[in-house]
């Protein structure tokens, strides 16, 4: 499947939730489907999208958080599976689009998933309670919907073609997105979405 097809299949689930992406093709394709104030794109810092998502999920248990990651990124922070599994936040879904290459560098630069490393199996062995590898957009969308409905920490790996968008450009500066995202999360709290968290003091 194409990553864009997979993402389109789960876009309705993403649009109403908090989403944190890695850098590169995933944020560009998500943005092309329609930016939402609850979407945050972690340019650079490869591997840390899931850590940012974990921080949000633990800080705000009333929000459902989805991390959109890639094989190259997650391989740079495999310890994240063990940390997520340790706390098992039921409001966190970690999606890994696995195209087996470092696509933005070139298709010839394969990652270890091209030579047999199985990210879903690694996550399961780390203690993540719900894991799967999906090979069609339909099965992937179904697995995502089930994981969100079950309210159980999940790592879902979507095997996708090594094909990216024509352009990686997003017409939203990373700082613009960062402040918009923070304000959005604050607004969700003010709107009474779940238990209030610690209020910041006024300046």
């Amino acid at each position: 499947m194409l990553r864009l097809e997979a993402m389109r299949a789960i876009y309705p689930l993403l649009a109403e939730r908090v989403v944190v992406t890695n850098m590169g093709a995933a944020p560009a394709e998500l943005f092309s489907l329609g930016h939402q104030p609850g979407f945050f794109y972690v340019w650079h810092s490869m591997g840390l999208a899931s850590s940012v998502a974990l921080g949000i999920a633990l800080a705000r248990p009333e929000l459902q958080v989805v991390a959109l990651d890639g094989d190259g990124s997650v391989l740079m922070n495999l310890g994240t599976f063990t940390t997520m599994a340790r706390y098992r936040p039921p409001n966190l879904l970690h999606v890994v689009f696995d195209n087996e290459v470092l696509l933005s560098v070139g298709r010839s630069f394969t990652t270890a998933t091209a030579t047999g490393s199985d990210l879903a199996a690694i996550a399961a062995a780390a203690g993540v309670p719900r894991t799967a590898t999906c090979r069609t957009a339909e099965s992937f969308a179904h697995a995502c919907a089930e994981a969100l409905r079950a309210a159980e920490l999940a790592v879902l790996v979507a095997k996708v073609e090594p094909q990216g968008p024509a352009s990686y450009f997003i017409d939203l500066h990373l700082l613009e997105s960062r402040f918009q995202f923070e304000r959005h999360l604050r607004g969700l709290r003010a709107a009474g979405a779940g238990a209030p968290a610690e209020e910041r003091t006024a300046p």
Binding site: V52, A53, A59, L63, L185, A197, R200
Partner: peptide, 11 residues
Amino acid sequence: GVSVGAHLAGV
């Protein structure tokens, strides 16, 4: 990453 997430989430 965890601290950045917590900050954006208001904690």
